[in-house]
């Protein structure tokens, strides 16, 4: 099991001939991900270290039957690439690209939702199911298979917590980087719902940050719908209001979206929240040890 990506993943990489696209497609393949095709318009018929390249996702679909796409094309073309993947019948789209206009994402989100397509990102590090598949840029070597599902709006902060967990001897089922943009395809609740349904996942760590109110909504979801214990961590406790802190979505608007409000919402629903990544990892390790 695990969620979103696993041994059944058949990956097509949109933008495979770009520098970053190629590097990470091959790194994902080296990890064991089944990379079946790449797409770069105009380069159909070529190959990238044995991965066949097609002009369109439709062509790739006809020949290699991918079920998942990783989007690595530049921001100006990324929205188009997502529509193309969905049009070709791809079920899961993982978009690494940063800088897609928010209005494009609004339309994409409302387009894919009724079609049952899973979109992770944009502006995200991807999804890793240790020992099974890695789709994206997450450095897999710092993670190990185990019972903890990890969902986060931040890439490197996820590595930080994952690394601390691994050092404490606690492995992970799946690591989902949902991305730092205002509109993302997979919300905390979407990921939590999947972790709840995944038999391999027994504990969940949710890493949030300032901006928006997804963490508050997730708190209500955890209280009402989850049986598995969740530990939280929220970054940006000292962030000033009105400033975009690196991620387009990480901004406190007025009094909304503060780390304090999110932490309180989680704690009010019985979720334990670490005040720093190390403490959050220890809280999880304690839970895991207690369940052994």
């Amino acid at each position: 099991m695990a969620i979103i990506v696993d041994a059944a993943t058949r990956l097509v990489v949109q933008g495979i001939t770009g520098r970053e696209g190629q590097f990470h497609a091959l790194r994902n393949r080296d990890y064991g991900t089944n990379v079946v095709a790449g797409v770069t318009p105009g380069k159909g018929g070529e190959a990238v270290e044995g991965v066949p390249v097609f002009d369109s996702v439709r062509d790739a679909m006809a020949e290699t039957k991918p079920n998942t796409s990783m989007v690595f094309v530049p921001a100006r073309f990324a929205a188009d690439a997502i529509y193309e993947a969905v049009d070709a019948g791809i079920e899961t789209v993982i978009c690494i690209t940063e800088g897609i206009p928010a209005h494009d994402m609004l339309r994409i989100y409302n387009y894919i939702r009724p079609r049952g397509v899973t979109l992770v990102g944009p502006n995200c590090p991807g999804v890793l199911s240790p020992g099974k598949a890695n789709v994206g840029i997450i450095p897999a070597e710092i993670f190990s298979p185990g019972p903890v599902g990890l969902v986060s709006r931040s890439g490197t902060l996820t590595y930080q917590i994952g690394n601390e967990l691994t050092q404490l001897g606690v492995g992970q089922s799946t690591i989902v980087g949902i991305g730092g943009d205002p509109v993302v395809g997979t919300s905390f609740i979407d990921a939590l719902e999947r972790f709840e349904a995944d038999p391999e996942t027994r504990f969940v760590v949710m890493v949030g940050e300032i901006g928006g109110s997804e963490e508050e909504k997730a708190a209500a979801f955890i209280a009402e719908r989850m049986t598995k214990p969740v530990v939280g961590y929220i970054a940006g406790r000292t962030a000033p209001p009105g400033k975009t802190m690196g991620h387009a979505g990480a901004i406190i608007s007025g009094s909304a979206g503060t780390a304090k409000a999110k932490q309180e919402a989680l704690e009010a629903r019985g979720v334990r929240v670490g005040t720093n990544p190390t403490e959050a990892a220890r809280l999880v390790a304690d839970l895991v040890a207690g369940a052994r």
């Binding site: 986060s152 709006r153 931040s154 890439g155 490197t156 902060l157 996820t158 590595y159 930080q160 730092g180 890493v207 940050e209 300032i210 970054a235 940006g236 406790r237 000292t238 962030a239 802190m245 690196g246 991620h247 990480a250 780390a259 005040t275 720093n276 990544p277």
Partner: peptide, 9 residues
């Protein structure tokens, strides 16, 4: 961004 925010904290 997340790691830097966390570092400030």
């Amino acid at each position: 961004a997340g790691l830097v925010m966390s570092t400030l904290d």
